[in-house]
């Protein structure tokens, strides 16, 4: 249907395109499809396609042979070789070991950052103490310092002094609790923990840690889950600091370092590299599919708060 036809069809049906205010009164119009009213679906679908295409392409290259992809025109549909390419990728670098390391790092940091972030957030949001406001402002200020870059070199020296270079704890310990975790949980607790509940707990004889266990933790689960997801994803994807401090010890590589080595060593073998890359993304995609709604809400709420 051309644009002109669409407009004609529209005026025959009644409301003119663009004047959405009248549209709901005309029921039959709802059934008829017209580009004039629906062009935004086209734009959004193109955007969606561009967002998702690289994942598809990863799988296409990863499931074909290099020859299939290098011909002109290249194959743009998945082939039968994914298992073979993925096996090659897993043998090319210590893939499973790196996955395990990344799980250890991201898992430990997530649990710790959520726990300590909630504890500190509770203190900042609900307890009165000297310097509460000033210290919170300080926490927020620390979020703006690009620590990973500014502190990269001394941090390396420090880890060297501790004897932690090449050990996972060099990545885990500095991230155990972050300013972002404290800030996020403070916001969550301030809005979702009711003062009456805390008062009631107090009357029942709870000390502050008892309040934390019995009142705060049950009411911040969803906010803490969002923080946990962001922390996990961040640690899973972190690259610069792990590369610097763990790069020398192959047994301590994270998945990002393994991917990097794979792509630099086997750069001519796209099928292998992209099959491996695709596999490294599977855990992320699973997390995303399960938690997409919460993450979208988290990003959008964070924006309003920020």
């Amino acid at each position: 249907m051309t644009n002109v036809d669409a407009v004609k069809a529209q005026s025959a049906a009644g409301p003119t395109p663009g004047n959405e205010r009248q549209a709901p009164t005309f029921k039959p119009n709802k059934r008829r499809f017209s580009w004039a009213n629906n062009w935004h679906y086209l734009v959004l679908t193109v955007a969606l396609f561009i967002s998702v295409f690289p994942f598809y392409w990863m799988f296409v290259v990863g499931s074909n042979t290099n020859a299939d992809v290098a011909q002109v025109p290249p194959r743009i549909t998945p082939g039968p070789n994914f298992i073979e390419n993925a096996t090659n990728a897993m043998n090319a670098v210590p893939f499973l070991r790196s996955l395990l390391n990344t799980f250890i790092v991201a898992g430990t940091v997530t649990v710790s950052a959520v726990f300590f972030g909630t504890l500190a957030g509770f203190a900042f949001a609900k307890m009165q103490f000297r310097g509460n406001k000033a210290l919170m402002a300080f926490v927020i200020a620390t979020m703006m310092i690009p620590l990973q870059q500014l502190g990269l070199i001394p941090l390396y020296m420090l880890m060297d002094r501790f004897g932690w270079v090449g050990q996972l704890r060099a990545v885990i310990v500095p991230a155990l609790v972050t300013g972002f975790a404290v800030f996020w949980m403070r916001q969550v607790i301030a809005t979702s923990v009711h003062d009456e509940l805390l008062e009631a707990g107090r009357v029942d004889g709870c000390a502050t840690f008892g309040l934390f266990r019995h009142v705060v933790i049950p009411s911040v689960r969803s906010g803490a889950a969002v923080l946990g997801m962001f922390t996990f994803l961040f640690m899973w994807n972190d690259f610069l600091w792990p590369l610097v401090v763990l790069g020398g010890n192959q047994d301590a590589h994270t998945i990002q370092i393994a991917l990097r080595n794979m792509s630099q060593t086997y750069y001519a073998d796209y099928a292998l590299v992209l099959a491996g890359t695709f596999m490294s993304l599977i855990p992320l995609i699973i997390v995303f599919v399960i938690f997409a709604r919460q993450m979208i809400a988290g990003v959008m709420e964070g924006a309003v708060k920020g």
Binding site: L48, S51, V52, M58, N237, F239, Q256, L259, L281, F288
Partner: peptide
């Protein structure tokens, strides 16, 4: 649309 647009953001820079 929202989740499709957000998915690139959770992907690692290396990948």
């Amino acid at each position: 649309f929202r989740s499709g647009l957000l998915i690139p953001n959770i992907t690692s820079v290396v990948a």
